[in-house]
Design a protein around this nucleic acid. Sequence first.
DNA 1: CTGAAAGCGCTTACAG
DNA 2: CTGAAAGCGCTTACAG
Lengths: 346, 346
Amino acid sequence: MTRKTSLKDIAQLVGVSTTLVSYVLNNQKINRINKQVAEKIREVARSLNYQPNQIAKSLKTNKTFTLGLVVSDISNPFSSSLARIIEDEADTYNYTVLFGSSDEKLQKSQKLITTLLNRQVDGLLIAPPEGAEPQLAELQRQGIPFVLIDRYFPDLKTNYVALDNYGAIYTAVQHLIDSGYQRIGLITFQTSLITLQDRKQGYLSALKDNHIPIRKTWVKELGIGSIEADVRKAVSDLTTGPKPVDALLFASNTLALYGLQQLNALHRSVPEDIAVVSIDQAEAYNLFQTPITYIKQPLLEMGQLATKILLNAIKKNNTITQANLEGELVIRDSTRAIEKEIMLMN
Amino acid sequence: MTRKTSLKDIAQLVGVSTTLVSYVLNNQKINRINKQVAEKIREVARSLNYQPNQIAKSLKTNKTFTLGLVVSDISNPFSSSLARIIEDEADTYNYTVLFGSSDEKLQKSQKLITTLLNRQVDGLLIAPPEGAEPQLAELQRQGIPFVLIDRYFPDLKTNYVALDNYGAIYTAVQHLIDSGYQRIGLITFQTSLITLQDRKQGYLSALKDNHIPIRKTWVKELGIGSIEADVRKAVSDLTTGPKPVDALLFASNTLALYGLQQLNALHRSVPEDIAVVSIDQAEAYNLFQTPITYIKQPLLEMGQLATKILLNAIKKNNTITQANLEGELVIRDSTRAIEKEIMLMN
DNA sequence: CTGAAAGCGCTTACAG
DNA sequence: CTGAAAGCGCTTACAG
């Protein structure tokens, strides 16, 4: 690689000090500098196609204009959509984004954080896996600016931006009930993460408030082992037998994707045989036999707000911001009110 | 942020020079160094939780162990899947990935490349937009290591890893013909990019080799304006009228996603009314009324190979590698052979 | 076996 | 209005 031109090259060509070149190209103390000299410097810089070495700049200024993004898996549509929004927002402030996937593993998450910090990112956006409290507490202790996205820990006083999970699911279940569904199953992950816990809680509260007795068998909490097989089995279990559920709530897009496939495989009609609600939008829902009612996450707001909070934190603004944004229930055909046999029998 | 511990801190505490500390922590000249001193240095480093400042290291060594990834849009499943594979492969060699989305725009692509280079990435992985030849030629002139992914330019002697687009589509069309389809429509983008040109060429050649006359109206080349509306119109045009096509080939996952929705809207049965083949896998295809036959891109091989080639190029290996990888035609129900009325009429 | 010193490419307080 | 000099945190050729 041919050596890039440096401040020194320009200084020598113009016959001035690097100090002056630096000031001019950074538009500093510009009113004190001889106009002709400044113009000459700019001209030479242009002709040599000067590009500042950010690394050198960073070493001196202790700022890299780089953000670290730790998601669960960048190939998941939720993560990649968020990544795109963060990229755009960061770009507005001349920041670039380094990313990594933790695969919901504590160790990978820790390794990523360390790597990103060694690369001197100015701050971190993190979707932390279950049990990440100690890692995050350590970051806090070190005074490193970070914002959690999608997930957070109630015991940790950190910046975060997440969905109002409780409210979103509550609304969805209420909508199902209002549409005449009473036997509502929930397929979710088995995890202590507040995100999923709140979703379950929203479901339970909505049932309770509507005086619908809660049945343990209606809630399927899946491990992170063989998701596809587990979802398929859960769907079969819930929709088969003498008293199948009449509605199904999926607590994530991955769960919904596999669950809907299983409903296809079982030749269930939606919503005639069973109503369906999912969380997270996915292009895929549009290809299903029936358009799916879903809870739309405010991804744009989430990504932009998280980035803004982080940039503020980097600027030593020490307020803590915690945001639980409202989801939007997008009602489509999969939760249409159905004349129920059970009603006809009454 | 509390100041991080530096080499100097360790040196002072142990009572040696930073030179020695640097050697020990980098396992250099280790056989010449006093074992006890080395052990002491390691111990202190550990106790202070020393983390080297990569920025300082980079400035000196001129290596950042960072790769720049320029995709069209990180939120597109094709890009994000590739990003994930590249991330994992890069991580194997202790590299981290900076990413950016060009949105198929020359100017954004150029700006991204400049930004990434200013951040001193060791090399670039680029999915270039149409017309990027001059940008890339300039990179070549500067001796900057890079590898193109998914797209490339025949006139440019650069590293690239892409699909054998011609072969993949040829195989798909042959498969359609073998299944009894004769009136095959192609929906693609209007672009000079070889990727899409080869796809069209594969389609045309397969028809020709099978002595099926080529009809211009069967090929819809869409601009990048309002994709969804254009796809829907193209699908309607091709499947309506006195002589509709009996099979439809989508040249990208986005096209397929919208096209399939339109087939749903038009109440067309697949494959009874019309057969469908798409390129790129997408989870979505599984939710469609009929599982879709598609050309599976070898994403894993593509991402890994591209990363390996780039890392080799960074190590001053000057061979140029150009790879057109084979796609795999995954045959499913959407191209099942159908008893055709037209055949019955014979 | 060990260390003083130069230098990577910048920024910036200070002096004139 | 301008420049010499120090320094960011490392690495490494060189000398002893």
